[in-house]
Design a binder for these strands. Structure first.
Lengths: 356, 356
DNA sequence: CTGAAAGCGCTTACAG
DNA sequence: CTGAAAGCGCTTACAG
């Protein structure tokens, strides 16, 4: 079944191609009857306008591109689903590109797709850029030169002091501070932080959460102990169960014990850490407390239920859509950095430290 | 920064547009020096060929479209990531469209995108179609009329007796049979199956797994007991923790006890079921055994480690790429139904039934 | 309200 | 190896 063109449909309907075009695009300047007749014929013969030709003429499209780079977990999926709804409500399609971190020159690839694509707007979801801070900032600047509205979602703009783009994130710092304060209020003083990355990159979620943890310690007058920071051992996969597990395991094996609570960088890492604790013969929360971050389903169904910070994914997605759509309407619009406050939800994974 | 066109670049380089086109497309019939010079200029001025114009001329593309409809969990993400690698190796980009089940006329939407898209090939990942069996079969037939190679991945073709498309799945039936046989070998006779859907649709994963479960019972001479089938209570979300939890909870509350083991339709449902069991005061595996299906990370890190069937996601993705690429080369190629055998992995969630 | 015509930015025979 | 020209299928002023 070969594809039908506007020309053939025009001939069938006995009208000009311009009339078909108008009918298909719901222009007001078509006779309603003509419009109905043409659309019926389109339906009958399975005519679908060629999107490439349309795009070539129009120059831009009703499509929002969402880029996810590297790690791609449940949290991003949930945000993505809310983004789809929010943009659909505004009449936009959403297309997703996942670019593997391992892909050669992934930064160049992203840039190429954005330039080629003629998208109405672009969302960068999750982290982007490379581990190299300067390279990331450079990518951000290069993206800024492309004439397409874009926002960063669940990640701040890494371009440094002079932000190039709007961004919407959970308030990692405040959430981590709340969570740590919660542990302190239960009597904990020796709290390990699981999943610190290695790059000196202040804007990563783990770094912001680590900073919030330190702020809470300071608030309470608890001295910060470097030896309680559990470094990530699985490269490029900070936010995974495997990293939570292997990092905690290595830390425990190196004899650095003495923590009464573990704050993992995210829920999945917490579950991994939980396995390492169990294998070390420790019971949660009787022997040690454990908290995560993100508020995924898995935190709620894990045994024991995980105390965590729930990210307001729907709100994050809606803000993202709002800011991007506003930027599309008004490209000169000011950059906006939105930080959405997460909500502490208590599970059953925190208890007072054992009397010992 | 306005976008540069082939015409401008040609003028800058002092050559014809056709020469630029040849240089950018790596044709053999260009002077290597000219080619180098043009590509350097393209790099310098940030020239990127307009994908829409290119597509309009070429008629098809180096892009594979992956469609995910409805539920979109960790398993599909893993398969997706492997698909991206497999297609990238063959020189194809991958673009993902997620179509919500709730979206109005999602079947029509999919059809429209496929027709419009001029994709090199299409992968349907996860289930597709609607709960209505006949509607699904009809969609499959309509898709078959579109002149684009397509395959179904992790789902069979629903079009009924005369399959229209190739498909690659784990062998749900065999896996469920193995898993059930495993439980029987540990002494279980009263095994509940958690997560049966409501549609009379034999090809759904849950239905195939339920059939495998029944086959194993029959193999062992254990009578099938309808009251041990735990129906899904969360509509349209069979494979979620929430459905595993609520379905099991409702089943337990309705007084239908007596099961010594629970076979959940997938790992996430198993974790949900696990919470319902815990809340009912039952301990896994001391009081009841619990198994899942899929082999997600979460099964491995759950407490207790979940016995499950691990889907060979890499193999499934590679077969999918192989079959689709072959179909693209040879459109008249025969339909192929591939069933990949999963691997039973023992965790710590199965024990002999309590002596009682 | 409708039609004839130009042109979006490419690729590809065709001619040299 | 290179260039001039046609044309992919649309949309949109422009003229009626």
């Amino acid at each position: 079944m070969s594809e039908m063109t506007i020309k053939e449909l025009a001939r069938i309907c006995g009208v000009a191609v311009s009339t078909v075009s108008r009918a298909m695009n719901d222009r007001s300047d078509v006779n309603p009857q003509t419009r109905t007749r043409i659309r019926a014929a389109a339906e009958k013969y399975g005519y679908v306008p060629n999107a490439s030709a349309r795009r070539l003429k129009i120059g831009s499209t009703d499509t929002i591109a969402v880029f996810i780079q590297g790690e791609f977990g449940q949290l991003l999926i949930e945000v993505l689903q809310h983004l789809e709804v929010a943009f659909a409500d505004a009449g936009y399609d959403v297309t997703l590109s996942h670019v593997a971190d391992t892909q050669n020159d992934h930064a160049g690839l992203v840039e190429r797709i954005v330039r080629e694509g003629k998208f109405g707007g672009v969302v960068f979801l999750g982290r982007y850029g490379s581990a190299d801070r300067e390279a990331s900032a450079q990518l951000s600047r290069r993206l800024g030169e492309i004439d397409v509205p874009m926002v960063f979602c669940t990640t701040p703009d890494y371009s440094g002091s002079a932000a190039q783009h709007s961004s919407i994130s959970v308030d990692d710092h405040a959430g981590a501070r709340d969570l740590t304060a919660h542990l302190i209020s239960r009597g904990h003083r020796r709290i390990a932080f699981v999943g610190a990355g290695e790059e000196p990159d202040r804007e990563h979620a783990w770094a912001l959460r680590l900073a919030g943890y330190r702020a809470a310690l300071q608030d309470a007058g608890v001295p910060f102990d470097e030896s309680l920071v559990v470094a990530s051992v699985v490269e490029g996969q900070v936010y995974t169960m495997r990293n939570g597990y292997e990092s905690t395991q290595r830390w425990l094996q190196s004899g650095r014990a003495g923590a009464t609570a573990f704050f993992a960088v995210c829920d999945t890492a917490a579950i991994g850490a939980g396995r390492a604790l169990i294998e070390a013969g420790l019971s949660v929360p009787a022997d040690v407390s454990l908290v995560g971050f993100d508020g995924l389903d898995v935190a709620d169904y894990y045994n024991p239920r995980l105390t965590t910070i729930v990210q307001p994914v729907s709100e994050i997605a809606q803000s993202t859509a709002r800011v991007l759509l506003a930027t599309m309407r008004e490209p000169a619009r000011a950059i906006e950095q939105v930080w959405v406050r997460g909500r502490l939800v208590e599970g059953a994974s925190v208890a007072a430290p054992p009397a010992s």
